[in-house]
Deep mutational scan, measured.
Amino acid sequence: KLETFPLDVLVNTAAEDLPRGVDPSRKENHLSDEDFKAVFGMTRSAFANLPLWKQQNLKKEKGLF
């Protein structure tokens, strides 16, 4: 399991300012399950079932792209 970080560490943070080991294209993977659901309004599995373009739009909207 990946290390999780608080939302404010990941949202609207440039790649070079992210904690070590965080993939800038997969910031959402480093949210706790609770934060993930609070941000996206759905579970990880529901998010994973969305088309890629919709996932990317949601990530942009939430500052996690």
Rank of each mutant, 00 (worst) to 15 (best):
2 L>D: 15
2 L>G: 15
2 L>N: 15
2 L>K: 15
2 L>S: 15
4 T>M: 09
4 T>V: 11
5 F>H: 15
5 F>S: 12
5 F>G: 13
6 P>N: 12
6 P>M: 04
7 L>I: 13
7 L>E: 11
7 L>Y: 13
8 D>T: 09
9 V>S: 08
9 V>L: 11
9 V>E: 15
10 L>S: 07
10 L>I: 07
10 L>K: 13
11 V>Y: 07
11 V>W: 03
12 N>K: 07
12 N>A: 10
13 T>Q: 10
13 T>A: 11
13 T>H: 05
14 A>E: 13
15 A>N: 15
16 E>T: 09
16 E>H: 09
19 P>R: 02
19 P>W: 00
20 R>I: 12
20 R>H: 13
20 R>K: 14
21 G>M: 07
21 G>F: 05
21 G>H: 08
22 V>D: 03
22 V>F: 04
22 V>R: 01
23 D>K: 02
23 D>C: 05
24 P>H: 04
24 P>Y: 07
24 P>K: 11
25 S>R: 11
25 S>V: 11
25 S>L: 11
27 K>N: 05
27 K>R: 15
27 K>S: 09
29 N>A: 12
29 N>K: 12
30 H>A: 07
30 H>T: 03
31 L>S: 04
32 S>C: 09
32 S>N: 09
32 S>T: 12
33 D>K: 06
33 D>P: 08
34 E>I: 08
34 E>R: 12
34 E>F: 04
35 D>C: 04
35 D>Y: 00
36 F>E: 02
36 F>G: 01
36 F>Q: 00
36 F>N: 00
36 F>C: 00
37 K>Q: 13
37 K>A: 11
38 A>Y: 02
38 A>Q: 09
38 A>S: 12
40 F>H: 03
40 F>G: 00
41 G>W: 00
41 G>R: 09
41 G>L: 07
42 M>A: 04
42 M>K: 01
42 M>W: 00
42 M>C: 12
43 T>G: 12
43 T>A: 14
43 T>F: 00
44 R>S: 04
44 R>W: 02
45 S>Y: 09
45 S>W: 06
45 S>Q: 13
46 A>G: 10
47 F>W: 11
47 F>L: 01
47 F>C: 00
48 A>C: 07
48 A>I: 09
49 N>E: 15
49 N>A: 14
49 N>D: 11
49 N>F: 04
50 L>P: 00
50 L>D: 04
51 P>I: 02
51 P>W: 00
51 P>F: 00
51 P>L: 00
52 L>F: 14
53 W>C: 11
53 W>G: 13
54 K>W: 07
55 Q>E: 00
56 Q>D: 14
56 Q>L: 14
56 Q>S: 10
57 N>T: 10
58 L>N: 00
59 K>N: 01
59 K>H: 03
60 K>R: 10
61 E>N: 07
61 E>P: 02
62 K>E: 04
62 K>H: 10
62 K>F: 02
63 G>A: 05
63 G>S: 06
63 G>K: 07
64 L>H: 01
64 L>W: 06
65 F>W: 13
